[in-house]
Design a protein around this nucleic acid. Structure first.
Length: 230
DNA sequence: GCCCAGGTGGGTA
DNA sequence: TACCCACATGGG
């Protein structure tokens, strides 16, 4: 591991410890969560997953065969529910038709091949595909997301408008291709992001990365010049 | 009442 | 390539 990427990891791990990701009991449930969590808080995803479980739909074949009206109603808490119901069934049907209903079978393939297979499915973009590869299949692929973009932008590592592939490449260059490390690092970024690095009002006080961070430094200095009380 | 959350796909210039 | 928008719930 090199430079800033190593320093950030060490600080986050020292503060938060192991995150035990992904929060799911099977690879298929993990993939369902990856689709449902798109632009939605995890709390709402948990409700949707519990609803699917209560109807026995956390398996590829039953989910693939269920009426879309039922699936949509069950995943309603996860927002965009018609769209996500369709995406879940597209994924489940792909597993049934191409892999005997086994996500493990699909994930046994070579990384680049499985990735392009996932990306070809409706509703699975780079982040969802990489999450499924890493957290569902143990492939050495670093997952980046909105928190990663924001947090490392505020630290001064890259521009706010950097794309997914460019961010991912920076991690792949800086880190050894270790799935265990990638797993923990991404989870730690999300943990820190939720707690300290939110979009509108970051809470830099107490953030383990504050001494590396421009936003935190600005908040600190401006409190002594312009924006301060009295 | 307002903002935002572990994105993706489709459209336009 | 670079933006813009639809999708459409629940919590702080």
């Amino acid at each position: 591991m090199k430079g800033l990427f190593e320093a950030v990891y060490n600080r986050l791990f020292a503060r938060f410890g192991p995150q035990h990701w992904w929060p799911a009991s099977t690879p298929f449930e993990m993939a369902v969560g990856a689709i449902l969590t798109q632009s939605v808080s995890w709390r709402n995803v948990e409700r949707a997953i519990a609803n699917l479980a209560s109807e026995g739909l956390l398996e590829p074949a039953p989910l693939a065969g269920a009426p879309i009206e039922l699936v949509a109603e069950l995943v309603r808490p996860a927002r965009y529910y018609w769209q996500k119901a369709r995406r879940l069934q597209t994924f489940a049907r792909h597993l049934v038709q191409r892999h005997g209903g086994s996500i493990e079978a699909m994930l046994r393939g070579e990384t680049a091949k499985v990735r392009s297979e996932l990306l070809a499915l409706e509703g699975i973009g780079p982040e969802s595909a990489d999450s499924i590869l890493l957290y569902g299949g143990g492939h050495p692929v670093f997952v980046v997301d909105a928190y990663t973009r924001r947090l490392f932008h505020r630290i001064g590592v890259w521009d706010e408008k950097i794309g997914y592939a460019a961010m991912q490449e920076r991690f792949h260059r800086a880190l050894p291709a270790d799935p265990g490390l990638f797993n923990e690092y991404h989870a730690l970024i999300v943990r820190a992001g939720k707690e300290y690095c939110t979009a509108r009002r970051p809470r830099c006080g107490g953030c383990p990365l504050a001494s590396l961070c421009r936003t935190a430094a600005e908040a600190e200095s401006s409190s002594g010049e312009d924006g301060s009380p009295r």
